[in-house]
């Protein structure tokens, strides 16, 4: 009896929490179907303005190009940072040495510096590479991810070292061991890392804001923040934009979800 009561409480508590978590998503979708005035008043039922809002978004503001830009940025950042960070995580973990551990400590410390202070020197650097106002200028600095290096190193700790040893005995080269033995067996880790990399690149705000200048190279976040910051924004259009910006993230998350917990799991093994 008591047990049942406890479970009832748990279900109620979790349901309320889930409701609060999901409600803003619901309201955002409702908002994309409503006119600006209704959104400000907090209307929570579906309206009929979705097509109008969506048309506005595409025709007046050029949504298509923006989506493509964001996709290009995210895909290259995901590929790049997965390769670079997993190689580094593997290097730090499998070939342990004192000097590399010192380097690793320095790498971790750089997490603490507020990115806002690095914008001007980074911008100067991008000028040297001739990458100002280009998507590659957005992508390259986002590839080395300290968090992902850490994440991969944690995961490789779980990897059975005997397999590596055995492969060496068989005469496989170090790179071959990594690319054709270790990497394919760590799918969950890569999937979790991919979600993380996609999330950070898709949502990046400050750096794209600094480096991108022309409107046809804007990414989704810049687009949204610009939509909302005008003097008289149409909130129906803003909401529709927010929906469009959030959708790819949700799709990626659901597509890779089943690996996700597994992947995170590897990183937190003690």
């Amino acid at each position: 009896m008591r047990r049942k009561l406890v479970y009832t409480f748990i279900y109620i508590f979790l349901s309320i929490s889930a409701f609060i978590s999901i409600f803003p998503f619901y309201w955002m979708i409702v908002g994309s179907t409503n006119a600006s005035v209704d959104i400000i008043k907090g209307k929570i039922t579906f309206g009929t303005k979705f097509i109008e809002n969506f048309k506005n978004l595409i025709e007046t503001f050029g949504l298509g190009q923006v989506l493509l830009n964001s996709l290009e940025v995210s895909i290259f950042v995901v590929i790049g940072s997965l390769i670079v960070s997993s190689l580094a995580g593997y290097g730090f973990e499998i070939y342990k040495s004192k000097s590399r551990n010192r380097v690793y400590a320095v790498v971790l410390w750089t997490l603490m510096i507020p990115p806002a202070a690095l914008m001007v020197p980074l911008f100067r650097l991008m000028n040297v590479f001739n990458l100002i106002d280009s998507l590659w200028g957005v992508i390259l600095p986002m590839i080395p991810s300290v968090f992902l290096i850490f994440f991969f190193r944690q995961n490789f700790q779980q990897y059975p070292k005997e397999i590596i040893m055995a492969a060496r005995v068989d005469g496989a080269s170090e790179l071959r061991i990594f690319f054709s033995i270790v990497m394919p067996s760590m799918k969950a880790t890569y999937a979790a890392a991919a979600i993380y990399a996609f999330m950070t690149s898709w949502n990046a705000y400050l750096w794209p804001l600094v480096i991108i200048q022309s409107s046809e190279k804007r990414t989704m976040t810049l687009f949204i923040s610009n939509l909302a910051s005008g003097y008289n924004p149409d909130f129906g259009v803003v909401m529709t934009g927010v929906v469009v910006a959030t959708l790819p993230m949700i799709i990626v998350f659901f597509a890779l979800q089943r690996y996700f917990v597994q992947g995170v799991l590897g990183s937190v093994k003690q």
């Binding site: 290097g91 070939y95 342990k96 690095l118 590839i143 080395p144 990594f178």
Partner: peptide, 22 residues
């Protein structure tokens, strides 16, 4: 040596895009 090879890409990128600005 292999250890350095594996972390080299990350080190180059980190030096350029994080360490130099810092």
């Amino acid at each position: 040596l292999w250890g350095w090879v594996f972390i080299s890409l990350a080190l180059i990128a980190l030096t350029l895009f994080i360490l130099y600005p810092i």
